[in-house]
Design a protein around this nucleic acid. Sequence first.
DNA 1: TTTTTAGTTTATAAAATTATGAACTAAGTT
DNA 2: AACTTAGTTCATAATTTTATAAACTAAAAA
Lengths: 156, 156
Amino acid sequence: METHNLETRKKELIEKIGVFYEKWGMQPVPARIIGLLLVTDKPYLTFDEITTELSVSKSAVSIAVNLLLNTEQIEYITLPGDRKRYFKSRITNWKDMVGSVLDFAKSYSSLFNEILEIRSDKDSEVNRSLNEIILFIEYIEEALPHLISNWEESKG
Amino acid sequence: METHNLETRKKELIEKIGVFYEKWGMQPVPARIIGLLLVTDKPYLTFDEITTELSVSKSAVSIAVNLLLNTEQIEYITLPGDRKRYFKSRITNWKDMVGSVLDFAKSYSSLFNEILEIRSDKDSEVNRSLNEIILFIEYIEEALPHLISNWEESKG
DNA sequence: TTTTTAGTTTATAAAATTATGAACTAAGTT
DNA sequence: AACTTAGTTCATAATTTTATAAACTAAAAA
């Protein structure tokens, strides 16, 4: 199989994407795999292509790929009579991401509820703010589906 | 000054808050300071109260407190004729946080624009998704101020 | 002027994370 | 049956992060 190397500019962008995701707590190798799968023009990359394009050990790729599969950030297909897995980014399922932002907001909300319960100074500034945030998150939770469907409509 | 120790349940909640923030990439000590300032009933805590409540060294508190001040997550007041700083959580300014969520979305958007520019396969699935995400973020950016003002109204 | 207070800075130690190579597995090929 | 492929697992090494103690600073108090 012809192994066509990515050019320097693409490699640089992969590093940049890597740093971007690292800042949000992702590990270096998974972050660069995400970048690689977004930058490459090939619809799918194999395990081996990932190791060679990123110059990273098989073990690192193995661990990273499984992490990204578990967190549903990448997926793979297989071809009949071919043991290799063909990986691609799951960015096409980006609407799920919006849902996970909401899940994040809700986990915040339930933590804040716990804080409210333990505080005895019931009418402090902090209590008022925590209450407001909890209510605002509920409001967003309700409004978001409408927002999305409005957007879907607006773009036809 | 009377030093009233926090009870076990509050200490446990501070650890839980700490772990919550750590999962989002925050360092342990800053994460626990955020928790402490949310859980305590005192309106303000001094540097020294933070070190003793969290059983953490002065240097760790010094570094953490400055990090949290720089990222505008806490603030402090001073009292006349008193060299101590009195720290509190900036959670009361939570509406600014909503703005920073948007900033985050915009930084995502500009990264995705860079990816689009470098890709040659202009009508792939990935290109369509990246484009959609960029447009959706623009839409949210426009819609959010209205959403907030509607909420402000609805709660009177 | 000396001491105390309220921190900051720095060198170092301890712990956790990350990456690697080598050995291994399990399926498919020759 | 031996070999190759497509990975996985594990022990170890390298790097980074985090925390500490101790020395330091700058202002205020005694």
